[in-house]
Write a protein that binds this DNA or RNA. Structure first.
Lengths: 122, 122
DNA sequence: ACTGTATTTCTAGAAAAATAGAAATATGGA
DNA sequence: TCCATATTTCTATTTTTCTAGAAATACAGT
């Protein structure tokens, strides 16, 4: 991930309505929700929501697909992951134990070390 | 973490200079760096850097301590973790396998499920 | 083709944030 | 105490972002 992409993603999330939208979609999963339902649930005016959805989409944090008259929005988990990785890159000079960051653990996921795989580096 | 705290943290990171500062400090580790060295390395005017450091500090992403005439800044890994957790809360209706997010992998750390003997499929 | 619904784009005014110069504050050393 | 260094606070200007009304577009059903 490039720096400008990370700034775009963070800017997109750094706004109350958009953070609400993103977290709603993250919790919903890949099936997503039509714009109208998002607007209704979060009580955001349609043009305002559309503006925010565009920001999130351009930032690579949500995806859009059409279903009839509705546009369905869903979280982009890959984009989310890319952002997390960018923020924690070279964490503690490469010692993950020093800054262990557990994420996405509703029950039992945890950050652990795995056998090093060969990385293409330059 | 409250929503306003998350927005504050994301706003703090959603700016090129501050993102540079934060990632520099994340890579440096807990010993941190004096403001002057950060300014020098990233080529940011002192008042501007001071403004940005204050933002990051109020957002709970970095910590400050004094050492003689210098003010030393270091990443706040707990604050960082809190933000990650907030963003991934209730991820995919509690199914981490659906949105596995690897973080903090300078070489080889990855997010995995700890006891995946019983996989909850749906 | 016409109608209604879903959503976006256009627009402009209001609010918030970034920048850097000048001045102020805090510390350590002579 | 006086000076130099490190950093911050004050200030004003410029730039960016948020918001929602009005108009436009896309689609499905009749």
């Amino acid at each position: 991930m490039e720096k400008t992409d990370a700034v775009a993603a963070l800017s997109a999330l750094a706004q109350e309505s958009r953070l609400d939208v993103f977290r709603l979609l993250v919790s919903i999963g890949r099936e997503g929700l039509p714009a109208g339902q998002i607007a209704e649930r979060l009580e955001i005016a349609a043009p305002t929501l559309s503006f925010h959805l565009t920001q999130l989409r351009h930032a690579g944090l949500i995806q859009m697909r059409r279903d009839g008259r509705s546009l369905i929005y869903a979280a982009d988990y890959d984009g989310m992951t890319g952002l997390m990785e960018y923020l924690t890159e070279n964490c503690c000079n490469g010692d993950p134990a020093a800054c262990r960051i557990p994420v996405c653990e509703p029950q039992s996921a945890t950050l652990v070390r795995r056998k090093p795989r060969r990385t293409i580096r330059q």
